[in-house]
Structure formats: C-alpha cells, structure tokens
Design a binder for these strands. Structure first.
Length: 424
RNA sequence: GGAGAGAUGGCCGAGUCGGCUGAAGGCGCUCGCCUGCUAAGCGAGUGUGCGGGGAAACCUGCACCGAGGGUUCGAAUCCCUCUCUCUCCGCCA
C-alpha cells in the first residue's frame, strides 16, 4: 500500500506508474472520497472537542451539586451528530482503503518500462548449457522411468498438478531443502524459521496477496484461513505491528515451506512435470532492513540465491522484470532462470524483490533510530532460495546420462548419503 | 469440547461508586550533575497515529488502555460479540 499523503501529493507520478504496469484505478473516486473524508473528519474533531470541554464542565457542576441538565441536553444532540458523521467517515475510509489497497507499488526508477516478460532485459548469464550426444529427455520422463516421480498416481490421490516423489526422488527433494537451508544459515547469516503454513486474511493483506488476488489462493472452507502461496507471507508477518530497534536491523530469515497455489488461469500451461504445481516446496529468504540499504540488500539477496545454483553447477541467467511484468507489491524484482535442456529454454527458479515500504506500511512494521524521535517504516525484501521442485527438475535434466541415469551434483552428495548417481 | 482467570506504555504493575488519567509507582533507557575508574547518588526527560501553529526548540486539537459494537453528557473503568493468553478436566499427533 502507498501512503495516502504520498498518493495525494504525487498523483501524476502514481498514475503514470500504475499505467506503466498496465493497471487501473478510479482516481476521481479517490479524490472525491479523500476530500469528503477530510471535511467530515474536521467537523468530527471540532464537535468532539466541544463535547470534551462540556463534559468537564458537567463534571464540575455535578461535583458542586449544581444542575447540568441544559448542557447534557445540548451534548446529547452533539453526540447524535458525531455518530452520524462517524458513519459517513467510515464509509469514505472504506472507499479510500479499497482504492489504496488496489494500487500497486511504484517501480524503482532503475526498472525498465515494458509490457510483459519479453521486455525483461537479461543482465547476466552464468554457466554453459550442457551438450548431449543423445536426445535430452524431460525431467518427467526421466523421473517416471526411474520410478522416482509418479504423476499418474499423484493425480489419483489428489488431482492434476500434484507431485508424488518416491525413493531417491523424495530423498533428492529433501536433500536439496537441507542443502539450501544449511548454506543460507551457515554461510549467509540467515536465521532459520518454520512458520505456519496456513495464515489469516490480515497476513495475506499485509504482504499484498489480498484483496486483489484471492482467486490465486486456496482458502479453507468455513474458516477465514488460506494455505500459503509462499513463505513470504508468514515470515514477513513475523514482525507485523512491531517497532524494531535500529540495532536489530537487518533481520534475515530463511524458511522452508510447502507452497500452495490455485494456478487459476494457467490451464494448459506447463501441464507436464514439476514446473507448475498446486503444491511445491520452496526455501525462502526474507529480509527486514533500513530503507537506505534496501537496494544493496537486494543485490546480496540475489547473490545468496545464485550461490545455490553455482554450487549445484546449474546454468542460469538473471533478468530484471520490466514494469509490465513486475509483481503487485514489488518495487524491483530480479528473476533467476535456470536452464532446462528438454525445453531448450531458461525457466524461472527464483524471484528476488525489494518491496521497499509497501508491505511494511500494510503490516505496520517500523523501527526506531537511537536518539531520534518517532519511527520509520522498514523495507522488506524476499527471494526464493530456491524453488525446490524446479531445482529437482533442473538437476534431473541437466545431469541426465545416455543410459537414463542421473549424476548427483557433487555438492549435494553429502546430503544424498554419498551417492553419486540415481540409476533406474 | 467443558469449567474458570486474564489482556493497561519498552518491561513490571496501579487504576477506587464511570468524570482534568496518556494513564500512579517501579524497572529500563536518554541527557545533565556529582564521585579521580566501576558501583551508588541527585536532577530532568522518555508512547504512537492524524491535523493546526512555529525557522526551530516547542506549543496545540483529535484518537488510541487486545479487536469490534453498545449504554452514557462523559468509559481503561458498565454491557455484548470476537480474538488471544493462562489454570483445571476431557480428547489427542
């Protein structure tokens, strides 16, 4: 959410930014409700002042045993008027709140203007795609032939877009989770957390999934609870409503969680394999930082995620999301895309974003500087470090052998009981 | 699920029969004084949001005592609903 004052004072900037993202908002309704709200609030405050003064007077009269019937009668009508205006105020604030919650974040000036993912500039490419002297297979074929992935049975248990890992497949998924968590905690200074996988409506609103994107979420029936689509939601909300101290910052958390997404509107896309699932595992990185450092923190967050791919020896590239492809809450996002041989293309495996104060304002996460009055909103960042299912897919495809086996990346072997390859 | 207790400022904790209580007292913290170090001591200050005034220090209005409603001229104090915490019982991974 943007600050109402900021929107009011920078309307052209905000309008331009929303337009660049391909969004819309009812600016006229905003102006109307904003003016109306101020007028009503002003009158309410005056009346309340009047009432406060009169109440004191009534208290004094009564203490002296004098009558105060006239004052009390006056105040009764003032009270009625206040109540009436308060209803009006609530209505206007509702309108404003709805509009403000629906306005996306303003992109950082360094974000390129563009329409969609085709306009995302590649900022670097690391590693070289492997060359095979045989026809490279998709990870779904590799996995099913070795009996470590079983999509048919998963479909019977739950439905399409659910995974079932077996044997070495399940072990590989678990190994990757531990591998990633160990690196982020031991080498990158993150604190491991294991949060709730179900959250309430407020938390979802704080990070920006709600109110706009409810159709992307799984909601529990008869409960106002949702399955998390990413650990970003519970982890960012760890500090909702808090005032942190300057010395506490920066705070780094890493969390493994399953993620649940309805994938509404993606029918027919990535129907095979582990790329697009209703349930997948992810190791997430979340940061709370001082505003003046958030962009250097974003660069380091990106590096932290890249480290995993480098250690696994997977080829990848990094793109900057253009304005049209940027997520609702983000001010700037880098996507890391891993090379997928069977599809002969790079696929997103991590998304690293700086939300600036957007989420912090919604979630009311502030900090106080030593010796300074007042508080300031923190900046929040997060990034996948990495999406585990897609990492499994990338390992299977990039390390596949002619005989149908898959070599385990060296760095991962300690996590696989020393095993060097997965064979049929 | 059943029975009971509770939710106040960074923390602890008081708030009488509703009326100068943004909230006593203590701790902590900040600044100053004093003591040749440390400790102790003394003095002052120390919540957040929105708005008005001032160059600024600061002054000023409104709101906030878990959340939301209600009663009342007036509520941290009374009533209702919800959430959370604690104790006991039941059930249970």
């Amino acid at each position: 959410m943007l600050e109402i004052k900021f929107v009011r004072q920078n309307l052209p900037t905000v309008q331009k930014a929303v337009e660049n993202r391909g969004g819309t908002a009812d600016w006229e309704a905003f102006n109307r409700a904003d003016a109306q709200r101020s007028a009503v609030l002003n009158e309410i405050e005056q009346l309340r002042h009047q009432r406060n003064v009169a109440s004191e007077q009534i208290a004094r009269l009564k203490k002296n045993g004098q009558a105060a019937d006239a004052q009390m009668a006056d105040m009764r009508s003032v009270g009625d008027r206040i109540k009436q205006l308060e209803t009006e105020l609530t209505a206007q604030e509702q309108i404003l709140g709805d509009i403000l919650l629906g306005i996306p974040n303003i992109p950082d000036p360094s974000v390129p203007v563009g329409r969609d993912e085709k306009d995302n500039p590649v900022i670097k490419t690391v590693g070289r795609p492997p060359e095979f002297d045989f026809q490279a297979k998709g990870h779904w074929d590799i996995g099913e032939q070795m009996g470590i992935l079983d999509f048919a049975r998963a479909a019977r248990i739950a439905g399409a877009r659910f995974p079932l890992y077996l044997g070495a497949g399940a072990h590989l998924e678990r190994a990757l989770i531990n591998f990633m968590l160990d690196i982020h905690t031991n080498e990158h200074g993150y604190t491991e957390v294991l949060p709730p996988f179900i959250v309430n409506r407020q938390s979802m609103t704080h990070t920006g999934q709600l109110p706009k994107f409810e159709q992307d979420l799984f909601k529990l029936e008869n409960w106002d609870y949702f399955l998390i689509p990413t650990a970003e939601v519970p982890v960012t909300n760890i500090h909702q409503g808090e005032i942190l101290t300057e010395e506490q910052l920066p705070v780094y958390y890493t969390a493994y969680t399953p993620c649940f997404r309805s994938e509404a509107g993606s029918y027919g896309k990535d129907t095979r394999g582990l790329i697009r699932q209703h349930q997948f595992n992810k190791v997430e990185l979340v940061k709370f930082v001082e505003p003046e450092h958030s962009y250097e923190e974003l660069e380091r967050l990106l590096q932290n995620a890249e480290t995993i791919l480098q250690r696994l020896g997977l080829p990848y590239r990094v793109v900057t999301l253009c304005t049209g492809d940027l997520g609702f809450s983000a001010a700037k996002t880098y996507d890391i895309e891993v090379w997928m041989p069977a599809q002969n293309m790079y696929r997103e495996i991590s998304s690293c974003s700086n939300f600036e104060a957007f989420q912090a304002r919604r979630a009311n996460i502030r900090f106080k500087r030593k010796g300074q009055k007042g508080t300031q909103l923190v900046h929040t960042l997060n990034g996948s470090g990495l999406a585990v299912g897609r990492t499994v897919a990338a390992v299977l495809e990039n390390y596949q052998q002619a005989d149908g086996s898959v070599v385990i990346p060296e760095a991962l072997r300690p996590y696989m009981g020393g095993k060097e390859k997965i064979a049929p």
